[in-house]
């Protein structure tokens, strides 16, 4: 297997990707792209590189551009370096009605960054979350590394972020 960078494909990752492949008909190689990318991204500090995309394309025997198309479409994929922990504050209607904007402002001030940015110490990436994160009855809410934190208050947020310090 030429061109597959083994740094990204240790045994564990390979077996995970093989398990993904089993879910789909054999000739539907593209089907495994999304979940494989999630795994590879997680192993690479939360973002994808050209190398990863090329390697996955070779591994799955699909075109690089097919993988890249997917990587740029879905919002959970980052094709630029990001911080170690990803914070997504839901600001969609239900959360907005319960003052999510205050929560977001607070986090921005506290971390000294705007949405879409990463803190200097690389600890936090504040994702520009456009979607509703489906926890409207726990509004306002956020996800840190895709774990939900609901019914947020400023104090709660401070505590949560401390856990990641």
């Amino acid at each position: 297997m030429n061109d597959i960078n083994n740094n990204f494909f240790n045994n564990e990752t390979c077996s995970m990707i093989e398990n993904i492949k089993k879910k789909f008909p054999e000739d539907r190689k593209k089907s495994s792209i999304i979940e494989s990318l999630l795994i590879l991204q997680k192993n690479n500090n939360g973002y994808l590189t050209k190398d990863i995309i090329t390697s996955l394309a070779k591994y799955l025997k699909v075109e690089e551009i097919d993988v890249y198309e997917v990587a740029t479409f879905y919002s959970m994929f980052n094709t630029k370096p990001v911080g170690i922990n990803t914070i997504s504050v839901c600001t969609n209607v239900s959360c907005m009605l319960r003052n999510a904007d205050n929560i977001l402002n607070h986090i921005e001030n506290k971390l000294g960054i705007k949405v879409g940015e990463t803190t200097k110490d690389q600890k936090f990436f504040l994702k520009d979350e456009i979607e509703c994160l489906a926890a409207c009855n726990g509004a306002p809410m956020m996800q840190v590394n895709h774990k939900n934190y609901e019914n947020l208050t400023i104090e709660k947020v401070d505590k949560i972020l401390e856990e990641f310090e």
Partner: peptide, 23 residues
């Protein structure tokens, strides 16, 4: 199967595309 962030995939035919590993 797991998605990766896109409201539009809730639309049923977009979901089929997503399961097929496309945009």
């Amino acid at each position: 199967v797991l998605g990766a962030g896109a409201y539009i995939v809730g639309e049923e035919t977009a979901m089929l595309e997503a399961i097929e590993g496309k945009r």
